[in-house]
Measured scan of single mutants.
Amino acid sequence: KFNKELSVAGREIVTLPNLNDPQKKAFIFSLWDDPSQSANLLAEAKKLNDAQAPK
């Protein structure tokens, strides 16, 4: 279960257009550290992506 959630969340995070590479890497490392938090980490990444969207 975690492997699928981890890969789905990881793929989504790397495609978020408004995150820079260090931010993406930080989220990916957090996913590896605790795969059970993949849904929460993906939600946080999406929030940050939205907040950094060009206005």
Rank of each mutant, 00 (worst) to 15 (best):
A39C: 09
L16H: 03
A26G: 08
Q23H: 01
P22T: 15
A51D: 07
I28N: 00
N20H: 09
K1S: 12
A9F: 10
A9E: 09
D33S: 13
F27I: 03
N20I: 05
L16Y: 05
I13S: 01
A39G: 08
K1C: 14
S38E: 14
A53H: 05
L6G: 04
I13C: 03
L16S: 02
F29D: 12
L6W: 09
V14L: 15
S7M: 14
A45D: 03
E12L: 10
N40Y: 11
P54A: 08
A51K: 09
S30Q: 15
G10M: 15
N18I: 00
D21H: 06
I13H: 01
W32L: 12
W32G: 03
K47R: 11
Q23W: 02
K47T: 06
D50W: 05
F2S: 09
A39W: 07
P54Q: 09
F27L: 06
L19Y: 00
N20C: 09
L31D: 02
N20G: 05
N18E: 02
N49I: 01
I13A: 01
V8M: 11
D21F: 11
K25W: 15
A39Q: 10
I13Q: 00
R11Y: 11
A39T: 08
L48N: 03
R11E: 08
N49M: 01
A51N: 06
A45W: 03
D21Y: 13
V8F: 10
S30T: 08
D34G: 02
L41F: 05
P54K: 09
L31C: 04
I28D: 01
A39L: 09
S30C: 14
L31Y: 01
D34W: 02
K47F: 07
K46W: 06
N3V: 12
L41A: 03
A45I: 03
K24P: 02
N18C: 07
S36N: 07
N3D: 13
S38V: 15
A53S: 10
A45N: 02
F27Y: 08
A51W: 06
K1A: 11
F27G: 00
D33L: 15
S7L: 14
E5R: 07
K47M: 08
L48S: 02
L48F: 03
S30R: 15
K47Q: 07
D33P: 00
A53K: 07
W32K: 05
A9V: 15
L19P: 01
Q37I: 06
Q37A: 11
K25A: 09
Q52R: 04
S36I: 05
R11A: 11
Q23D: 04
N18G: 00
P35D: 02
